[in-house]
Structures are given as C-alpha cells and as structure tokens.
Nucleic acid binder design. Structure first.
Length: 478
RNA sequence: UCCUUGGUAGCUCAGUGGUAGAGCAAGUGACUGUUAAUCACUUGGUCGGGGGUUCGAAUCCCUCCCAAGGAGCCA
C-alpha cells in the first residue's frame, strides 16, 4: 500500500502522474465530480476528481459534507482555474459517513455565535483552523522566547490554599459531601475534614509561587491555566484562561517593561512569519467583516498592518500621573463625553479612558506605570513618593489590558505594612514573606493573558472564540 | 451583576393584533471541468418556556431562561 501523504505537501508538489494516497474530510462535493478534501495539515483543500460515470451511485451518495475519506489516486496538474493540482481518484473508501441531513456545518458561512454552540465541530472551519494554528504558534513562540533567554519554566500548582492574593473570586475545591458537610462547634463548615485538611481553591495566579522560584533560579516563567469565578460576561473574560507569568530577580520596573515589550514583539513576529497563510486568511476575514460596518467604525489598519505596526514602533511609556493630565485635557473630558469624567488624581482608569489613550491619542500599545498605591495590589513596590507603586499595565488597541505587572516590594517592613493596611493576613503567606526574610532582592514580573494575545494576533473579537472550549458563567459544555 | 438589543424552518433573517414567509441548507430529478457549481421540484415551524389581556397573539402585558454588544471586575 502507498504511504499516506499530507495535503499540505501535495498542494506544493509537482510530481505529477504519481500514485498518491490521502485521507481527510469532505468540505464540499460539487458537480457530483469534485471533492474539496481537507486533512487539517493546512487551510487549503485538495481537489479530488471523481469519474462519476464509473463510480457506483451508492458510493457517490455517501460523499457528503463532513465525511471522512481515504482516497487513492494519481496526482495531476489541474485543468480548473482554482488550484494547481488535482487527484484523479482511482479508489475512494468511506472511512466515516456524515449524514448530510444531520451534520450541522453546511457549505456556507456560519455565524461565530452559532459555531460557539458547536464548539466540538468548529475546528473544521477555516476560521477556527486558522485561529488555533495561530494559538499554537504563539504558545510555542512564548516557550522559545523564554528558553532562548534561559528562563526556567515552572509549573505552579493549580490547587492552592492561599486566598489572600485578592486577584478575584475563586472556585472552591472540595471532596466534602454537600448534603452533609461536617460542621465545627460554631456551625461553620469544618474544612479540617476535607481532602487537604483545609479550604482549597483553584489558582487565580501563579505569581506568588513564581516569586519563590525566581529567588533561586533568577528568572522563571509560568504558563498554565488560571481560574476566576467572577460573574464576568464580556468579550475579554473567561472563567478558565491561560496565563504567562515571568518573574525576574534583580530586575526593576524598567527591565520588566523591556522584557514585556520584547516578548510581545518576538511572539507577534513569530506568528507573522510562521502562520502566513492563516494570518492572511484572518486578515481577509476581518476586512470582509469591516465592510459590514459604517465607515466611522472601521479600523484604520488591517490586521497585518496592525501587527507590523506593533513590531516597528516603540510602545508608548508614560506614568499614571501623565495619563491623568492627558485625559483631563482631552476633548471627551472637556466636552463631558466620558461617562466617568476625569477630575482628580487617584481615580482608577475606566475602559473608556484606556481606550482613548490607546486608540485615539497614541494609536499604539501603551505602557502605563506608577499607579496610585490604593488601586493596586499589596505586593507592588512602593515608590519614593509614598503615593504610587512601581506597577505597569500594557494596554493594547481593541483589547485593553493585555499585561499587568510590577516591581515587587522586596523590603519586608514595607511589605508587611501594606499587608496590614489592606487586611491581608500575614500568617497565611508566611512562606511568601520568608523570601523577604532570607536573601530578599529586587525583582519584578508580569502576567500576560494568553487568550488576549491570541485575540490581538488573530483579529478575533470575542475571547470565547480563541480558546477551544470556553468556560464562562452558565456554560461548561464539552 | 447592571444597561441595551435580540430569540420565528437546520442556518441567516422578514413578518408589529386576523391564523406562517424568503434565501441558503437538506431531499428528489436534470446537467456535467466545477470553485459556497447551476436549474427545476419537494420536504421542513408547539414563532425561547410559562402565565395573562383579547372574539382572535409570532405581534400587546407580566415572568423566567438563553444569546449578542456595552459596563463593572480583571489577564
């Protein structure tokens, strides 16, 4: 028997008149004669030409959209205009039938909302083929970037006992029987009877554990699933998402910003050069979509232009205080077009403000630094002004916050003081505080929401379309 | 969780008080170098669920569920 070949290789082949064998799934079957076959090796289909006069009616009827086939045939130069090569079928074997009356994917354009409900089948569409290839490339590029810089990939725990991080609502992890939970004398659930002997949750961040490792390896990163039980129903939040969290010893906020910008450019560049076909497709898809919109709402740059723009321009860096000044004097603020008007220093920035800075004022990624201490986490390093902390948020057009990071507070007295002020129990984080007791050192790190990166690079607009099986409130299908 | 807009055939939608429609898909047939093939015919609906108003409800009211977009929370 001949060895099976990948469609990707055959589409570029010029070895005409050779016997080939392919396997794949039917995308369309036109004219009782032309099968567009896809095997996932690339976005393109190979055209199988069927000699329908010498093929049993029985078999022709079973060549339906979605059916899996094994085809033996001869590779020939195509007579048609749409493609360079055809396979003249000699023998077609149906590996798996696909009932055309029941198969949900039709040879036509489907809405993303519809495909979201068919998440088990949506990989079979061009759009999702492209999205998940790009997702793969980005994940690979992230590992390659850190590996080249000699970072150590740490696997931080998915189940944690600390609930003091304040990053968000947590999912409880328990084996207790809900119908008869053990109770303490004062009526509370007795978690000492639970599997771990204490209350546990799914992690909301690997940062604290990451810091422990960074204080030995010097530079580490994590890349794993993260969970937030927030009741968020937006196009950029998930209950289960993947996060990349580098942590670097002997680094300050400046180093941290540089690392983040370098990483973003590295992985975007990797995707551009390794997913040309996919990104070209997504670029076209987005252009088509934008055509539906009124002129005003269309973006100035195409997807490819936007990605290239990111690579060739420095991210704009400015402090929170400078941003407030810009916003205060901005047109929408003067004309009271903001829903939340910028009045004085200290307020948290709303999405509309971030969007103005990124999309209207600077028109490129922006790194905002040195936020007021009161709107940031306890572990961020206090600046000399005692008002701001060495925090940074990287804002991207269309996405908002892509990265959040900071230089960490390495001074034990200042750290414990902040914890007291923010009511964070020190005894629960004794192990974290130990790093400040024994050989503390300046260090910094950040968290990158992987799906938000995939959103940006694919030009998709809903985060539920860039993760295979999205988890969000009221939804855990598949 | 809040605000807005929606939920009608497998899909995308029209129908705004008088008894259910189109295009595509699917089925049957014709045609055969097509490119989401084309042409003809056919099938297909508890109009999101429940309750109410009315002689009569897809249409009006109440309520619940679900979806999209925006907000908050954040990555």
């Amino acid at each position: 028997m001949i060895k099976r070949e990948k469609i990707k290789d055959l589409l570029n082949s010029t070895s005409f008149n050779t016997d080939v064998r392919v396997m794949g799934w039917v995308r369309t079957f036109r004219n009782n004669q032309f099968i567009a076959l896809n095997d996932g090796s690339c976005m393109g289909n190979i055209q199988i030409v069927v000699d329908f006069n010498n093929t049993p009616e029985e078999l022709l009827k079973r060549i339906t959209t979605g059916a899996a086939l094994a085809v033996d045939g001869i590779l020939v130069a195509s007579l048609g205009k749409g493609q360079k090569v055809d396979i003249k079928a000699v023998n077609i074997e149906i590996l798996g039938d696909s009932n055309a009356e029941e198969y949900p994917l039709q040879p036509k354009k489907h809405s993303l909302e519809f495909l979201r409900e068919k998440a088990h089948l949506r990989f079979r569409t061009n759009t999702f083929n492209a999205v998940f290839k790009v997702r793969h490339a980005l994940a690979f590029a992230i590992h390659q970037f850190f590996n080249e810089k000699n970072f150590v990939y740490m696997h931080t725990p998915v189940i944690t006992a600390s609930d003091a991080e304040g990053a968000g609502e947590m999912f409880k992890v328990t084996t207790l029987d809900f119908d008869k939970t053990p109770r303490t004398e004062n009526g509370k659930v007795d978690f000492s009877e639970d599997f771990f002997g204490r209350a546990t949750n799914l992690t909301v961040s690997g940062q604290l554990e990451g810091e422990l490792a960074a204080m030995a390896f010097g530079q580490i990163y994590t890349f794993g699933p993260t969970f937030r039980a927030e009741n968020s129903n937006t196009t950029r939040h998930l209950a289960e998402f993947w996060m990349i969290e580098p942590e670097v010893a002997f680094a300050d906020l400046e180093n941290n910003m540089q690392l983040a910008e370098d990483m973003m450019k590295y992985v975007i560049n990797y995707a551009l050069s390794n997913c040309q076909e996919e990104i070209a497709f997504l670029n076209e898809r987005l252009l088509e979509e934008e055509k539906q919109k009124p002129q005003q709402e269309r973006s100035e740059l195409s997807l490819v232009e936007k990605l290239n723009f990111c690579l060739t321009n420095e991210f704009e860096r400015l402090t929170y205080t400078e941003a407030i000044q810009i916003l205060k004097h901005s047109k929408p603020n003067q004309k009271k077009q903001f829903k939340y008007l910028i009045d004085e220093w200290g307020a948290d920035l709303q999405s509309e403000h971030e969007r103005y800075l990124v999309e209207k004022h600077f028109k490129k990624p922006v790194i905002l630094t040195d936020y007021p201490k009161d709107i940031k986490s306890f572990y961020m390093r206090m600046n000399d002004d005692n008002k701001t902390v060495a925090a940074m948020d990287i804002l991207f057009p269309g996405i908002g916050e892509m990265i959040g990071g900071s230089q960490r507070e390495e001074r034990l007295d200042k750290l414990t003081k902040r914890m007291d002020e923010m009511n964070i129990p020190q005894e629960e984080l004794w192990w974290y505080l130990d790093t400040r007791r024994f050989g503390s050192a300046p260090h910094a790190g950040f968290g990158l929401g992987f799906e938000r990166l995939v959103l940006f690079v694919t030009g998709m607009t809903n985060i539920r379309d860039v993760i295979a099986f999205p988890r969000f409130p009221k939804n855990a299908d598949f």
